[in-house]
Nucleic acid binder design. Structure first.
Length: 278
DNA sequence: CTTGTGTCCTGTAGGC
DNA sequence: TGCCTACAGGACACAA
């Protein structure tokens, strides 16, 4: 669930809590959430370094450590990061980073699908190959109609599944792809290569718009409350969703009589309005 | 290369 | 009441 806006919000919230602090020690409570190197080396190598800054690439959160190395976190579906006081140990804590000053950064991940990596910027491990192949950031200037058109040209897959492909536009997941397609008035089932130039233009604009709005509202906190900001508060974009989680409800678009429908594309759900998305 | 499918993982929702 | 199954989702391995 954490997609680009949620990861960006987490990054912004964590930055002042981490930068300048030193990692006093690392406890790996579950080895398989460490993607690289192996858990023992990870714990040994990360300990002792100081946080110098943060950045983000797609859904990857990068915590910069001194010496140009990075602690990279992917939250996948249910992961989150919180800064806790020394005595607090959250349920489902998988890795704990003790911090100078007594607090700790806790990587909490009930489903254990999320991963942490410790890499040197010159040598990204095969486990992070996906990161190097990642496409343009939809919130950056390089994400133009031309760029998206080139990525979709000749492709027979559904536009929905290509929006979820991180090599096409990184940081997009199920929520924001559904929302962008609704804003653009395009059905998720459409063959990507069959979109007109005008439709691709609307889609590029919609992706930029919906992701920037997601960031502006600090991400989407659904009913399960799994995603929250580092200070524990909820995001605000869930109140502005137009199709995600609105199956069976009337379309948001003024004047549209449609009822939001859910279809299966590949192995994930897509929601759309049959009346205003063609 | 492209596309679709299965897998990982576990809490939760729904059925009976 | 309680068990059982299906489902959710991001990324990747794999088959066709």
């Amino acid at each position: 669930m954490p997609e680009l806006p949620e990861v960006e919000t987490i990054r912004r919230g964590l930055t002042p809590l981490l930068v300048g602090r030193r990692i006093s020690g690392v406890v790996v409570r579950r080895n398989d959430v460490v993607g690289f190197p192996d858990a023992a080396d990870f714990a040994r190598q990360v300990a002792g370094h100081r946080f110098t800054g943060t950045s983000r690439r797609g859904k990857y959160l990068m915590l910069e450590l001194e010496g140009g190395r990075q602690l990279i976190v992917h939250l996948r579906l249910s992961g989150h990061l919180e800064v806790v006081t020394g005595s607090v140990r959250p349920r489902y804590e998988r890795v704990r980073f003790g911090l100078s000053g007594g607090k700790a950064l806790s990587f909490v991940e009930p489903r254990a699908l999320g991963r942490v990596y410790f890499v040197n910027w010159t040598a990204y491990p095969p486990a992070l190959a996906g990161m190097r192949e990642m496409g343009e950031e939809p919130v950056r200037a390089g994400f133009t109609t031309d760029y998206l058109a080139a990525k979709l040209r000749g492709r027979k897959a559904s536009v929905k599944s290509l929006l979820l492909d991180q090599r096409v536009c990184c940081g997009v997941g199920n929520i924001y792809s559904d929302e962008a397609l609704h804003r653009a008035g395009i059905r998720p089932t459409r063959r990507a290569g069959r979109l007109s130039r005008a439709e691709v233009g609307r889609l590029a604009r919609a992706l930029r718009g919906v992701l920037n709005d997601g960031i502006k509202w600090c991400g989407t906190t659904m009913e399960d409350g799994r995603y929250v900001l580092p200070d524990g508060t909820r995001g605000g974009f869930q109140e502005r969703l137009r199709v995600f989680g609105r199956e069976g409800q009337r379309c948001w678009r003024p004047g549209c009589e449609g009822v939001i429908r859910r279809v299966q594309i590949g192995n994930r759900g897509a929601r759309y309005c049959p009346a205003c998305q063609e």
